[in-house]
Design a protein around this nucleic acid. Structure first.
Ligand SMILES: [Zn+2]
Ligand SMILES: [Zn+2]
Ligand SMILES: [Zn+2]
Ligand SMILES: [Zn+2]
Lengths: 145, 145
DNA sequence: CCTTGAACCTATAGGTGCTAGAGATATTAG
DNA sequence: CTAATATCTCTAGCACCTATAGGTTCAAGG
């Protein structure tokens, strides 16, 4: 049996985060010691490690919730799991595309500045007027990694 | 003079967002009509357009706040503004690097799945064990575009 | 056995950048 | 004048935690 601190250390997840996952139903409430402290079986470490790894790969908690419930039904087809992963891959690619457009524009902006006064600063000027931009590709879209 | 709706339409910013910017002190409180509705001078459109563009380029509101107060002092050196832009460029590049690592791992995961049952699904397996990953580069880091 | 200090408990609030809703008032077009 | 639209304030919610406060339990050393 593991205390919440040991569990967190083993999985690389902070203690309040574990409690948060329990609160939103991503981790089942574990048993308690006589003094009311959480005690986790080894299996909880696998589950938390799974969650942590999926978070590291950018999956949203809702997707992880679905993946976990799928992994509890080992006989079923994995099509649903694969679809979730492909969706995530597409989301990551979309973010990369957007960020790459931002990078180009920022790079241009920084490179063109002559390091004089604010009045002649290219950074300030470009920010004030999108028509100075080479690309339209930074139309607002999304967030989060 | 512009109503909040016209201002928002002109700058491509939603009305509640404008009120939010006012609330956090990013936009100065404008005058009001006799019926207590906000009335903006033309200059507010420039300021809001600046904010919108900087947001589109991923600058956090705090950085934009700094950039705006710099742009109010046109005689000063633009070094501080350039530094903010370079910081933003570095942040964008860091996110791209991280997302590119995620992309590679997700791609591998999806490609290796044989489309059988959950029990043999490579997606589920890799998520459960980071040692299946080719790279360590998805150690948690940041967020937001 | 007793004390100390770390780890644990609950509950609440904050952070980022908005967005959505309720319920009331103002303005504008027909 | 009336009806539709736009505005007003206030509050709560989104994702995903993180931090704080104020209290209890546990493990080890003396
Ligand atoms: Zn400059
Ligand atoms: Zn632009
Ligand atoms: Zn599969
Ligand atoms: Zn991995």
């Amino acid at each position: 049996m593991l205390t919440i601190g040991k569990l967190g250390a083993a999985a690389g997840v902070k203690v309040p985060t574990i409690r948060y996952y329990e609160q939103i139903g991503l981790l089942p409430p574990p048993g308690r010691s006589t003094g009311n402290q959480r005690l986790y079986p080894r299996a909880a470490l696998d589950r938390l490690t799974f969650i942590r790894h999926a978070r590291d790969l950018g999956f949203p908690l809702e997707a992880i919730r679905d993946l976990l419930s799928l992994s509890d039904r080992p006989d079923q087809s994995c099509a649903a799991a694969d679809a979730i992963a492909r969706t995530q891959l597409a989301a990551v690619r979309a973010r990369i595309a957007r960020l790459t457009a931002l990078e180009a524009e920022l790079q241009r902006m920084v490179a063109q500045c002559a390091h004089g006064t604010i009045a002649s600063c290219r950074v300030i000027e470009v920010l004030g007027d999108h028509s100075h931009c080479a690309d339209d590709d930074h139309a607002r879209a999304d967030a989060a990694a």
